[in-house]
Write a protein that binds this DNA or RNA. Sequence first.
DNA 1: GTCTATATTGCGATAGAC
DNA 2: GTCTATCGCAATATAGAC
Lengths: 210, 210
Amino acid sequence: MNVLRRPSAAERRSRILRAAADVFFEHGFAATSIDMIIARIGGSKRTIYAEFGNKEALFTALVTELADDVLAPLHEPGCNEAPDIRTALVRVAERLISAYASKDLVGVYRGIVNEAHRFPHLAQAFYDKGPGRAARELKILLDAALRRGEIKPIDTAVAADHFVGMARDNLHLQVVLGLSGAPNEDEIRSRATGAVELFLSGIATTSRDR
Amino acid sequence: MNVLRRPSAAERRSRILRAAADVFFEHGFAATSIDMIIARIGGSKRTIYAEFGNKEALFTALVTELADDVLAPLHEPGCNEAPDIRTALVRVAERLISAYASKDLVGVYRGIVNEAHRFPHLAQAFYDKGPGRAARELKILLDAALRRGEIKPIDTAVAADHFVGMARDNLHLQVVLGLSGAPNEDEIRSRATGAVELFLSGIATTSRDR
DNA sequence: GTCTATATTGCGATAGAC
DNA sequence: GTCTATCGCAATATAGAC
């Protein structure tokens, strides 16, 4: 049953995390046993314990690493280097909406909501890395636009929160509740431009029309 | 420890629901036993089973009835009878924000996110009664304002979704994740007017300044 | 209190790396 | 050949269900 080549440490680790994610997301933290993960990928419990230490650490690792992967596009260099605030916001909104509707982030979100009392530090880390960081970076973007005179003098931190809220939207909620699948490219683009249009025409000094 | 007067059926029912809510919200559906509820209010398991049938039905009842209670202010008569769209929106936003941050709604939300796969109909009902209904009623409000010429010709359904998203906001997320307590009156009012200002200046035909 | 499930650990055997 | 990671199984501990 063994493969011929011994997989690298990184391969092994990510295989474990992928399988663990699938099982944790389907059954929840408490109802997931290490054996269920082993059943999917083979190998020995000892390998998992050697790599992660214990079940909580495995859960923590998969939550943080999966969240990092999903959210990475939001912080790519070049993300903030748009010619104007409108283009920059559309780009951010598309990535936000897409991330919020992704299977992995929804799984992570559900897991954290379930286990927030058991892993308070994890809930904090999730918020800081996701919506918190998005709002912080957005505030920087807005401050720059403010200096360039592109937007009205408003509280940019509050505006950033509103924007992230709009991007999260009822669509994210429907996905979290299992009422809707992931949106397609067109839907994401349309929602992103719509949100930016609404957001911008509110704070732009020059009130453009659609 | 017993009271002299036998409580009415309605009193008994709501006492059970209150206790059940507290226990379910603290431990989650799976980890809650009927005995834990009995331990809080006394009485017999038979009373609960006679009233609700089983654990799932009890959970369903408390989720729907608590959600109804929390969301009732959103649908009160008079809510839509404001002199202008701005006043109406502020009123709606305050009630939305307040509801989203309330202990009961957050508890219900967590429970449903946990058990969405077990109670798909419940997730659907929760969405329809809460964010879905709010967006529907908001759309009616916006359509009326549109006919009165108060706002630009936009897709009012999408705009309503955006508004509800703004109201839900990072604040709601922080409460759900246990990172923040309920906001006070001032914070709610300030967030509501801020969101409406941002929202309105985007869609109002006359671009007012703050 | 008993019983079951499962997290966690111990250890000899083995397969690939070198 | 040695060396090391991994495997497979067995054993221990413990928490919760009944």
